[in-house]
Design a protein around this nucleic acid. Structure first.
Lengths: 345, 345
DNA sequence: AAGACGTTTTTACACGTGTTAAGAATAGGG
DNA sequence: CCCTATTCTTAACACGTGTAAAAACGTCTT
């Protein structure tokens, strides 16, 4: 505890009798230094309190060993799971993750991107904000760094790598399941805050048409402003149920958070959604939100492979990092969703 | 878009005909520079692409304008709300927040602390990991920086500022409510992963004794390893309900996530917890987790004032930052919880 | 027009480490 | 003991910006 505090490599060099350049090499990669010196330095470091200055080390290196991650919200367990899987993958690969949250604000998102550039991060992974994002921000990042988008994908953006769920597959899967086991589903949309909102809508429509059913979409416009998804699902269905609409329908929600609101609306109207009630109300979601299995009834949904998405994003980043000039072939990785049949549908 | 890219202040200085030191002052605080120069620089910046290097600017400044935040988990909306309120408060005050998540690992927590020190952050806010944390890490931070602990407080740590909820008040409040309206509550504990777990247990016990009731605590030991809180609540109550225990009790859960598991256990056993059923099963939680109002039934709980805690933590940090030598009086700020009576109890 | 004052430029050094080139020390082999 | 290969030290410059002191400039007052 009472170790003398050393603030610079120069001081450390004097203290343990090893030259500063050797110390510099030691901290970057101990194998670059002879066994005997490594031992000597190691013993010296046990006697004193010293950590190389974060900024000074990063300033001159070509590789900073940092990757920047931007996510749109913090208050959503889907994104925190994604972030966690990225952090773990990055840590395994020896990288430090710098996280910025855009708090639904394109301006903050743009500022975060600038911060990453000014920090010389080795690469960046971004989960886009949605329609309101400035696509130039992504183009700028993509032009200057190894860059990967994840989760949701701007339609009008080309040449940018992407990792996410195949919504045509995942939404198709659950649409088909719902249609097979009971009534063809109505789609309870979410406000179009991101590109996935629309992708899932379209996937639902095309699957319904393929199956020969009439698609029905409700809840595109928000009834409660910029609130939570749960509040949206609750408000929209509360309204419909009050009018006697959809009380015995199959309802596919755009995501699990909307579905949680939907379940709440059902409870409020003393409806009991469930797979067991043939012909009765059924509610399903999308994402396999961590709380879905604890809902009442437990929520039938399609799981996104968050783990794989995070890992793939980091892998792709590192791949782009290794080769100076990437093959310039845009890589788009789409993961399949997995059906989770539970009690609600 | 095709703006020439300028990488150093030197180049910028040459490009727009203003000296480098003046530019330096401009980027730190435009009001330190004459109107005419400000105007000239502003016009110049519109013509080129330039951002001051993050590391170089931070390296020499005495104040880096950054504050470090460590939270234990990401997969918990309580902590993400806390983090969000801190980020907003810090942003308002002009600070950049660097977040690190310790992922329940004391080693990662210690490393994050070292990173903050090596970055010369102006201050640090930490939500402790719990029993497994190395208290020396906090002492070290506290000795070298403005430092504030939040959310949960190690018993054996003195001289460190703290901001959090007054659990004696909050837990007492709901214990009293439950006792007043129905049967005195049983306490469904959570695994003692942090200091609040024990604090709430103790607060429950002393309030029960004050009211002249016999305290009963269940679920201290985890039945499902290091799983989620929800799984813990579910496993413990599922076990008890199977044996016919507590099926008409008032159950106070250590937090809302445990309570969500408890509601699930009740549903599995076809029990209907609710305030309306006088004498019947009732379930309550603690924290006002964002999803509590969407549970079935909606969850009665005590809200922690997350907003105020985050703001107070940042305020205190900035206060300590301003005065060179703080008055050394340890500041402990405890916020009151607010009762949220809903349907479950 | 002279002086005073505020601003800006110039000049120089600082921060802590990366990095390179040259020479010195060390080790191992004969 | 000498020779060569390796590793280290020394010395110096680099990175991009902060910062301080002194000199130059401009504007305003009188």
């Amino acid at each position: 505890m009472a170790k003398p505090e050393i603030h610079t490599m120069e001081e450390l060099s004097a203290a343990i009798g090893v030259s500063r350049p050797t110390l510099s090499r030691y901290f970057q990669d101990p194998s670059k230094v002879s066994k005997s010196s490594v031992e000597r330095i190691r013993r010296g470091l046990e006697q004193v309190e010293y950590i190389p200055n974060f900024f000074a080390t990063r300033m001159n290196r070509k590789k900073t060993g940092m990757i920047g991650v931007i996510i749109p919200y913090l208050n959503d367990l889907f994104f925190t799971r994604l972030l966690e899987s990225i952090e773990r993958a990055a840590m395994r690969a020896g990288y430090t993750v710098i996280t910025q949250c855009s708090h639904s604000d394109p301006e903050i998102e743009a500022r975060a991107a600038e911060t990453f550039l000014s920090m010389n991060v080795d690469g960046a992974v971004v989960a886009p904000l949605g329609n309101r994002s400035d696509l130039k921000v992504y183009e700028r990042l993509n032009a200057r760094l190894p860059f990967v988008l994840m989760d949701s994908r701007p339609a009008r953006l080309s040449g940018v790598d992407f990792v996410g769920t195949d919504h045509v597959q995942s939404t198709g899967l659950i649409t088909e399941y719902l249609s097979r086991v009971g009534a063809p589903p109505v789609f309870l949309a979410m406000p179009r805050v991101n590109f996935n909102a629309l992708e899932r809508e379209m996937a639902y429509i095309s699957k319904m048409e393929e199956l020969g059913f009439e698609p029905t979409i409700i809840g595109i416009e928000s009834l409660n402003g910029e609130g939570y998804f749960e509040a949206h699902g609750l408000a929209v269905l509360d309204d419909h149920f009050s009018k006697g609409n959809f009380i015995d329908a199959s309802i596919l929600c755009a995501n699990d958070r909307v579905a949680i609101g939907a379940l709440r609306a059902a409870a409020r109207h003393r409806l009991e959604p469930g797979a067991l009630h043939r012909g009765g109300l059924r509610i399903a979601g999308h994402d396999d939100y961590p709380l879905s299995e604890f809902m009442i009834p437990t929520l039938t949904t399609v799981a996104q492979n968050v783990q794989a998405i995070g890992q793939a994003a980091v892998d792709r980043l590192i791949e782009k990092l290794r080769v100076e000039k990437p093959h310039d072939n845009q890589a788009v990785q789409l993961m399949d969703g997995v059906l989770k049949v539970r009690d609600s549908a």
